[in-house]
């Protein structure tokens, strides 16, 4: 059974992709700050397929000790990583608050980088041609008012992913980003229906991006079916225009 680390698996897209992984025979190591009823129920239904690590990714300095030394150890190989957890601090730039910006960078950028560091080390130890999938956002490609700071974290992750792919490709390790469009998740829940409709009108399909579609793309990128795909950004965004 292949072990996949998923961050932010408690709700939204992370929960959706975790369900898809489990039902497709993967073992998920879920890293979450909180645990939802849905994730608890999933653990009850599939006790052998889901391990849950409670950890706040804002604590970048404790990733090595708390996740890798205390929880994972060296014996369990890691085959893939879905970097999903993120916080969205939105405001216009003239109101930028450094403290909020810095916390968002810890969760959205620094922690995924440190997780990638240790996951690559695990892959080297076990000689695994693993797959890393970062969930990026269409906001890094199509500007939206109020999302400059959030979008910049996703731009950073896309650059990191590209360079990960280049650096570790000769070991068979792949890295890709899914550039997700706006989904109906908690992250976009603060937008009113008028704002949402305006965003959806800017897509070919005129509808929100489906969490199932993003999740299944993540499964594809983890699987051997995508063995020649690396260093890419895959847009799963209802065709944003």
């Amino acid at each position: 059974m292949k072990n996949i680390i998923v961050t932010g698996a408690s709700k939204g897209l992370g929960l959706c992709v975790t369900k898809h992984l489990i039902t497709n025979g993967y073992h998920v190591i879920a890293i979450n700050r909180t645990i939802s009823t849905n994730l608890k129920n999933l653990k009850k239904d599939y006790p052998e397929s889901l391990s849950i690590i409670m950890f706040d990714l804002a604590n970048v300095n404790q990733i090595h000790s708390d996740i890798f030394q205390k929880e994972l150890g060296f014996n369990r190989p890691i085959h893939g990583f879905i970097n999903n957890a993120a916080i969205a601090y939105d405001d216009i730039i003239s109101n930028l608050d450094y403290k909020k910006l810095e916390e968002m960078y810890r969760v959205n950028v620094y922690s995924p980088m440190i997780l990638t560091k240790y996951i690559i080390r695990h892959m080297l130890l076990h000689k695994i041609s693993g797959s890393i999938v970062h969930i990026s956002s269409i906001s890094a490609h199509t500007g939206y008012k109020g999302l400059a700071m959030y979008a910049s974290t996703k731009g950073a992750i896309e650059a990191f992913s590209l360079n990960t792919a280049r650096e570790w490709g000769e070991k068979g390790i792949r890295s890709n980003c899914i550039v997700a469009g706006f989904m109906e998740t908690e992250m976009s829940s603060e937008l009113d229906s008028q704002q949402k409709n305006r965003i959806y009108k800017r897509t070919c399909l005129k509808q929100p991006t489906s969490q199932d579609s993003v999740s299944k793309t993540a499964l594809f990128l983890l699987s051997d079916d995508s063995s020649s795909i690396t260093a890419q950004n895959l847009f799963v965004d209802s065709g944003t225009i």
């Binding site: 060296f74 690559i120 080390r121 695990h122 080297l124 130890l125 570790w168 000769e170 070991k171």
Partner: peptide
């Protein structure tokens, strides 16, 4: 890259 592999094998 070899040194990276060496590092993790020594750490393990």
């Amino acid at each position: 890259l070899d040194l990276a592999e060496l590092t993790v094998r020594i750490e393990a």
